[in-house]
Structure formats: structure tokens, C-alpha cells
Simulated scan of single mutants.
Amino acid sequence: MLLALLLCYGGFTALCLSMDRHHGELLGRQPSARRRKTFKLGGWLLLAVSLWAAVAKTGWGLGLVEWFAVLMLSALLLVLLMPYRPRLALALAGLSLLASPVAVLAQ
């Protein structure tokens, strides 16, 4: 479940960075159309991989329930961090993507 949580948070942050407002706020410049598409595709891909990680570990019945819980938790964390600590939200996304291979080995 840790792997799904890390991937969900990274995916939601990538989707957040695909928006002009958040990209400018976090990275200091407006994204190009290609960069916006890349972040959007990467975000959806990370969310899909997190679904696979949750379902592969516990099966479809419990895996979907765990995935929805992880989805809500990671979105809540990002929503609470963005207005007050946007740089921390970005740093946590980077750490989550760096820690996900470790989570794979821990399973």
C-alpha cells in the first residue's frame, strides 16, 4: 500500500503541475504546451501504475478499496499543502518518486 500511496501522490502532483497556475507558482514560469501534456500524461500514468500496485498486492476486491483510500489520502495531503507550503508539496512529490523503488523492494 505504501507504493500505491507514493505513486498516487506523485501522480496528483504531476497533474497539478500540468495546470498553468500551479506550474507558475511552483516552478516560477509558465509551462509550454508540450510540458503540460507531458505532466498530464505522467500524472495519469502514475495513477494507473498505483492502481496496478494496489490490485497486484491484495486482489481486485480489497485492492480497489485500498486504492481509493490511498487516492483520497494523497489528494487530501496535496490539497492541504498547496496553499500553505507549496514548495514542501513539490519536495514530497520528488521524494515519493525517489522512494517508490525502495517500496517495490519492501513488498
Rank of each mutant, 00 (worst) to 15 (best):
K37F: 06
A93M: 02
H22M: 12
L62F: 14
S50P: 04
L2T: 13
H22G: 09
L105V: 15
F12W: 05
G43V: 05
G11C: 08
M82N: 01
L15V: 07
V102F: 15
P83I: 01
A48S: 13
M19L: 13
L51H: 00
V104P: 14
D20R: 12
L73E: 06
L64M: 10
G24Y: 11
A75Y: 10
L98W: 11
R85K: 12
L95P: 05
A4W: 02
V102Q: 09
S50Q: 03
L45I: 13
P86A: 04
L88N: 00
K37R: 15
A99H: 06
A99M: 10
A69V: 09
L64P: 02
Y84I: 11
V79A: 15
L41G: 08
L15D: 08
A53M: 01
P31Q: 01
L97S: 02
G43D: 04
M19R: 15
V65D: 01
L5V: 11
P86K: 05
A33E: 15
A91R: 08
L73C: 10
L98I: 12
L17M: 06
W52Y: 14
R34A: 15
S96F: 08
F39Q: 04
V65N: 04
F39H: 14
L81H: 02
G61A: 09
L6V: 00
A53S: 07
L17F: 07
A48W: 11
M72I: 11
L6T: 02
L64Y: 10
L7G: 07
A75I: 04
P101A: 02
L15N: 10
L71K: 01
V55C: 07
G63N: 03
L73V: 06
S18M: 02
V104F: 15
R85E: 07
W52E: 10
G11S: 06
S32N: 09
P101E: 02
A4K: 00
L73R: 05
A14K: 04
V70C: 15
A91V: 11
S100D: 02
V102A: 14
S50N: 03
L64I: 09
A69I: 07
R21P: 02
A103R: 01
L80A: 12
W52M: 12
L95V: 13
L3W: 03
L15S: 03
M1H: 12
Q107K: 11
L27Y: 07
E25V: 14
P86R: 03
G61F: 09
F39K: 03
F12S: 01
C8E: 05
C8P: 00
G94P: 09
T58A: 05
A33L: 13
W67S: 01
G11F: 06
W67G: 03
L15G: 04
T38H: 09
R85S: 01
G11Q: 03
G24C: 09
A103Y: 08
G10T: 03
G61N: 12
K37M: 10
A48K: 07
L81P: 00
H23P: 06
S50I: 01
T13N: 11
K57C: 03
A14D: 07
E66Y: 14
L98S: 06
A48F: 10
G24A: 11
